[in-house]
Write a protein that binds this DNA or RNA. Sequence first.
DNA 1: TTCTGGCACTCGTCTGTTCGGAGTGCCAAA
DNA 2: TTTGGCACTCCGAACAGACGAGTGCCAGAA
Lengths: 344, 344
Amino acid sequence: MAGEVRQLDERKLAVLRAIVQDYVGTEEPVGSKALVERHNLGVSPATVRNDMAALEEDGFIHQPHTSAGRIPTDKGYRLFVDRLAEVKPMSAPERRAIRHFLDGAVDLDDVVARTVRLLAQLTRQVAVVQYPSLSRSTVRHIELVALAPAKVMLVLITNTGRVEQRMVDCPGTVGEVVLADLRARINARAVGVRLPEVPGLLDELPAMFEAADRPAVTVVLATLFEALAEQNEERIMLAGTANLTRFGHDFPLTIQPVLEALEEQVILLRLLGETADAGMTVRIGRENAYEGLNSTSVVSVGYGSGDESVAKLGVIGPTRMDYPGTMGAVRAVARYVGQILAES
Amino acid sequence: MAGEVRQLDERKLAVLRAIVQDYVGTEEPVGSKALVERHNLGVSPATVRNDMAALEEDGFIHQPHTSAGRIPTDKGYRLFVDRLAEVKPMSAPERRAIRHFLDGAVDLDDVVARTVRLLAQLTRQVAVVQYPSLSRSTVRHIELVALAPAKVMLVLITNTGRVEQRMVDCPGTVGEVVLADLRARINARAVGVRLPEVPGLLDELPAMFEAADRPAVTVVLATLFEALAEQNEERIMLAGTANLTRFGHDFPLTIQPVLEALEEQVILLRLLGETADAGMTVRIGRENAYEGLNSTSVVSVGYGSGDESVAKLGVIGPTRMDYPGTMGAVRAVARYVGQILAES
DNA sequence: TTCTGGCACTCGTCTGTTCGGAGTGCCAAA
DNA sequence: TTTGGCACTCCGAACAGACGAGTGCCAGAA
């Protein structure tokens, strides 16, 4: 008995898989007859119809109107992604191409720019790449430069190649010697340390300077802490918006909220923020918190220079997307970007 | 006689103006009767029809099909912009709002970001703002920092607040003293000078150093020149793509090439590059060199911190746009950005 | 019990036709 | 030169009918 029930279930799953695959390919509701023709399920259309009715009952597929084919629901895609699909690995030539394209990058900006374009091209969808975040990275070097007697430029360089600079207006003049001393002491303590942990290590620094210099030292440190903490400086790069035109027929209605979402960095950051730290995250249709993206799916993953992820990247497309292919591309690109970052 | 011909021409122009205004408002071909109703032209529909026939003969308007109203052609819009429309000044509250919004900016990135968003909101179209270009700005400071024995970081700060940094791999070790010397000499010559003119002033510099240091000095200078010259580093910021959805009915066809164009910084830069240095430039439909923008108009203008323009900004919208209003907004925003830049 | 073929039924899409109305061009009169 | 009138064009909405894809159900076969 149990065996037969499982047998049945497996065929239903096969039907669902076939429906998803066909619908993704054709963009048209798929009927029982066409299904049997294209996939050799070994049963008749009538049987498939029964299964379809059951699948519909369970909410995995849905009919636009009586006497039309079936379309997968968000729930159906979810099941497909979780249990029926395998991430499709990139082919060797594709991997070589990715590698080659990313290797040409000259600096961090370029890496991110190339990555996002590459991802958009590979998936033919909208790609989003977050800059390696400050909070996960470590200090490579901190530089202080006197521009004027009371004006200091602060430069923060991270191990991910990111450079932040600030102007500091000091109360009173700061001697070159004091500045050099401060620079040396800061670097001695901070280099190699994770950004959020830096402030704790510099606590007792003002006390080590002459009373006259202390105000200036304090201001410089305050600015440094500010630069370290500024999470909302997180930047994002986008590409492939033109691919939105391939979205669907009910065009302006679907596309407008998506375009609006894409303009709001905050929304995109939150979107990527929901990505699990390890493994790939797929958010389908209404699973997305942001309403404007209710008819889209987001495939995202963390990437990083070493073992751990310092930022996220992903792809936004219609719920009707090629999940295995998209996931394969996203994973491959994330992996290679990680390697590039580790090398530089 | 001549007087009567002029009289006639003026009415024709009035008719054209009315057609443009109505069409921009309604998006529908405008007929003779409706025209007479909405504008008090003081003549009958039949007369207007005669004028319309003449205008069509001259290529200023055009009929989608017999027995439909008329639509302005690119040539018609051109005439409208050149002779029939006046730039519509912003109202006092609008100006205050612009001023207030831009005043909140904290650094150059922020100024540009706010400007582009503001412009998109005001015009309800796609806004494009070019970062103050390197070639027009002057050197405020050049800094050299030794990160490792053979690794130097070069930082270039311009009077517009822009900061560029490069890593330099030197052949052999560079002493701290040499570096300080080089820094001092470079700054002494370059500060306050326009970027493109800097290389010429540093020609004889290598000769002033010991033979052993010369290779390193040469490499540093080469990198600096590269940073100075790198015109294609010109960056652009975009906003308001969601406004494209209000474009028209024949949607995907029109919008796709536009989205593609917007993704290509090169195209946008060329677009802005065609802006006349002084005064506002309006490119209508096929006047745009880039084919994908053949059904759009571009309104652009230079802006700058002082008298002269250091960069361009503009708006991209359908040829059927509110030219007076758009031009007014573009002009006002450019003016205020200029002021903000001059102040900082 | 499960699958299958057959059959009646639903309903959306396509096609052709009709019809009203907006708009035109032309002409004769003011 | 302008105007009112008139015949004409042609788009687009509305309607009807045919077509076909697809379904659900049922009775019989495996």
